[in-house]
Amino acid sequence: MLGALSWSFQEADSDRVDSLLEALLADSGADRALLIDRTGQLIAAADAAATTDATAFASLAAADFAANEQLAGLVGARDFSSLYHQGSRQSLYLAGVAGRAILALVFGRAVTLGMVRIKVRRALPPLEALFQEVFTRPQDRGDDRLTAGWANEVEVEIDRLFDGV
């Protein structure tokens, strides 16, 4: 569906995701693991090399996944639940999570695709369970900072940043 409803990640959610991504990295031998919202926003990253432009990566990975979903429809498949991009040095594996997120693994030549598939398959159920919890609990902003006061300060910052450029 277009325009997923607003949702929020709390501290505990993030800790769980971080742990799962770190464990996946350690288990698989991959270089980077990223969790990305289907709209193109980064949720979390475990980045062994710490050199990825994660914002750009998230936007492109979401577009890639979305475009391939449409291609799947055109060839009569319900979806492509995972994608694999093979490079000479680094490769990329993307898997859908609960219809709302994408798990991305970047890995080098020392890691086999079969290993990545197995490890991702094991990592998906706890991630999907977490997302189900996040999406089904009542929306609570959980913080009093997102108030009109916050909006006013952001507006001042917008003026400061964009005036006179």
């Binding site: 325009g3 607003s6 929020s8 990640f9 800790d15 193109g40 926003q41």
Partner: peptide, 14 residues
């Protein structure tokens, strides 16, 4: 719509 990440304290708007 927008994702508010209270853990990393990020708000991203598209």
């Amino acid at each position: 719509m927008s994702m508010i990440n209270y853990a990393s304290r990020e708000i991203n708007c598209k």
